[in-house]
Structures are given as structure tokens and as C-alpha cells.
Simulated scan of single mutants.
Amino acid sequence: MDSQEWIIFILLSLHLCSATIAADIDPNYEWHMCGTSGNYTQNSTYDNNLNTLLSSLSNNVDDYGFYNGSVGQGSDRASAIVLCRGDVELSVCRGCVSDNAVRIKQWCPNQNEAFRWYNICSIYYSDESIIGSLRTTPEIEQHSITPVKNPALFNQDLTSLVDRLRTQAVNGGPFLKYAANSTAGPESQTIYAYVQCTPDLSVGDCNDCLNTAFAKWKESKGNGMIGARVLRPSCFFRYEISSFFGASLINGSNSTPQPLPPPLASASPASSPPPPPQSGKDGNKAPTVTIAASIAAGLVLGVII
């Protein structure tokens, strides 16, 4: 194989490698569920109302990453709740919501109800009246497959942390019910956790949602693992032994949050894997491709020299 063939071979190999990196690292998509309450007909009034609603979500998200609204009347009314993670800056939030709003109908093309959760934003829509109400289903529990070394002490430290965060979140006011922080755990581990409710919930409903979500985790196989989360349309709970959230909203800071949205690396999938990446916005994929391309260019230049 001459030098020119070697260069072509290396270029193709690096291209395949960078494509694999871009496909495997998806910090956005996590899980979806299509409702079972009924289906609608394509081009029906409900379908048109839902399309109008979904297309407007990204622009209507407020400065705290939240929106709820509806389009239509009676049985044709489509309602939606949008929530971004509390530490994600607004531009990233809206980009995530825009992408999510398109893909949720690709996954659930004619169901009256659907819930699609990205690592930094979620969308839930329904033909029922959902605005300002507590929604605990659809629900998903995901967890790591790696156990902690001292479950009893770990759970004790985690419970204390979550109790403090829940108190902070439920009293967050009408704009942002979010709290995140860390605590020292056993075996020199640090436990990171965050909780969040949709800000339209009352203090009591937010507290109930997070309490029952934590109880759900305690009864699951995730109890005793190094990371887990429980996701609901109205609230989220997650913990890890490595940092996964921005520091700007910890301890009550109001500075501009920085997006740090890595997925749960060893979570057990709750649904079929997502389709191949499509064109358009896809969260943090662009930096991955850019880095891979830069590495490829540098290696090729070295081979040529």
C-alpha cells in the first residue's frame, strides 16, 4: 500500500471513528412513553391544535425554563407542560425543547398523550386538563448497575441530602422549584443530587410528588446503586456519585446557570433505543463532531508530514 492509499485508509477510519463518537454520545435523548388513553385521527381538529401547540413551545418557554398552555376547546383541546432543568441556560433549554417538540410526534404519531424526557428538558402533552395539576404518570425509574460499597450509610447520607433539597425546592416560589447540591458519602464518595418540580404546583403537591418519587426509588432495583433517577411529568429526582449539574444555582446563587447535561452512563434503558441522529438541532452533538473533526485533521496532517 503506497503513501496515498495509506492516507485514504486513515481518513476513512477516522471518519468512521468520529461518526461513532457522534452517534454514541447523546446528552439529550433519554426516554419516552406514548399514552394508552386513546388515539386521534391525522388532520383532525385535535391533531391541528396539537401541532400548533408544539410548534409554539420553544418560543413560549419563560426565563426559568417552564411553560404550560393549551390550544382548542373541549375534547379537541391539546395541553402541554414543558420543563427544563434548573441549571440549564435559556438558549440551550429552548433548543432542546424545539428538537423535542418535533421528535415527540415522530415517536408517538397519533396518541392523545405522550411524555418525552431529554436530559435537560421534557415535554408532556395530553387531551386532558393538565395545567396546574399534579401528574405522576407516566413514570420511569432508571438506575446504574454498579452497587455502592456501603448501602446503609450511603442511603442515610442520600436521604438527608434529598430531604434538604426537597425543602428548598418546594419553597422555591412560583418561578423555579429546583434544588441541587452534594454531600460527603461513605468510602470517600461524594453524592450529587437534584430535585425539581414544575413551578405551577402548590407547595403541597410538589412535596408529595418528590416524596413519592423518592419512595419509588427506595422500592426499586436502583436502591443501593451509584446512580438513579425517577422521572415524572410534574417532578424529577436524580443522584450520582459524580457531578452532573451546573454550580451556579447551588446554595441559592442566582447567577446565569451553565449547562452540564451528561446522561446517566449506566442507566438501564426503559424503552427502545432512539433512531439514528436526524438533521437539525440535537443539543450538544455539534461540539462532539467539531472535536472529532479537529482530531482527524491533526492526525492526517501528521501522516502527510
Score class of each variant (00 low, 15 high):
residue 1 M to G: 12
residue 1 M to L: 07
residue 5 E to C: 12
residue 6 W to R: 14
residue 9 F to L: 15
residue 14 L to S: 08
residue 16 L to P: 10
residue 17 C to M: 13
residue 19 A to C: 10
residue 20 T to S: 13
residue 20 T to C: 12
residue 21 I to H: 14
residue 21 I to A: 14
residue 22 A to T: 13
residue 26 D to W: 06
residue 26 D to Y: 09
residue 27 P to K: 05
residue 28 N to H: 03
residue 28 N to M: 12
residue 31 W to G: 03
residue 32 H to K: 06
residue 32 H to R: 06
residue 33 M to P: 03
residue 33 M to H: 03
residue 35 G to I: 11
residue 37 S to L: 08
residue 39 N to K: 13
residue 41 T to E: 14
residue 43 N to C: 00
residue 44 S to A: 02
residue 48 N to V: 09
residue 50 L to Y: 00
residue 51 N to V: 01
residue 53 L to R: 02
residue 60 N to S: 14
residue 65 G to A: 07
residue 67 Y to K: 13
residue 67 Y to W: 15
residue 71 V to T: 12
residue 76 D to S: 10
residue 77 R to A: 04
residue 77 R to D: 00
residue 80 A to M: 09
residue 80 A to P: 00
residue 81 I to S: 00
residue 86 G to C: 05
residue 94 R to K: 15
residue 96 C to V: 02
residue 98 S to L: 11
residue 101 A to S: 14
residue 101 A to P: 04
residue 103 R to H: 10
residue 107 W to A: 08
residue 112 N to I: 08
residue 115 F to S: 04
residue 116 R to E: 11
residue 120 I to W: 10
residue 122 S to Y: 04
residue 123 I to T: 02
residue 125 Y to K: 04
residue 125 Y to T: 02
residue 127 D to C: 03
residue 128 E to R: 08
residue 128 E to G: 03
residue 133 S to L: 12
residue 136 T to H: 01
residue 136 T to S: 14
residue 140 I to P: 01
residue 145 I to P: 00
residue 146 T to R: 11
residue 148 V to S: 07
residue 149 K to G: 14
residue 150 N to K: 13
residue 156 Q to F: 13
residue 156 Q to P: 09
residue 160 S to L: 06
residue 162 V to W: 03
residue 166 R to L: 12
residue 169 A to M: 04
residue 172 G to Q: 05
residue 172 G to A: 11
residue 176 L to V: 10
residue 177 K to Q: 15
residue 177 K to M: 14
residue 183 T to L: 03
residue 183 T to I: 07
residue 187 E to T: 02
residue 188 S to N: 14
residue 188 S to L: 09
residue 188 S to W: 00
residue 189 Q to G: 02
residue 194 Y to S: 11
residue 195 V to N: 01
residue 198 T to A: 15
residue 199 P to N: 15
residue 199 P to A: 14
residue 201 L to C: 05
residue 203 V to L: 13
residue 208 D to T: 14
residue 210 L to I: 15
residue 220 S to Y: 06
residue 223 N to E: 10
residue 227 G to K: 01
residue 230 V to D: 02
residue 238 R to H: 11
residue 244 F to Y: 09
residue 245 F to G: 06
residue 252 G to V: 00
residue 252 G to Y: 06
residue 255 S to D: 08
residue 262 P to F: 01
residue 268 S to D: 10
residue 268 S to N: 11
residue 275 P to Q: 06
residue 275 P to G: 10
residue 276 P to H: 08
residue 277 P to S: 13
residue 277 P to V: 12
residue 278 Q to I: 08
residue 280 G to Q: 08
residue 282 D to W: 04
residue 284 N to T: 05
residue 285 K to R: 15
residue 287 P to C: 01
residue 291 I to P: 02
residue 292 A to V: 07
residue 293 A to H: 06
residue 297 A to V: 12
residue 297 A to C: 14
residue 299 L to E: 12
residue 302 G to C: 13
residue 303 V to P: 00
residue 304 I to N: 09
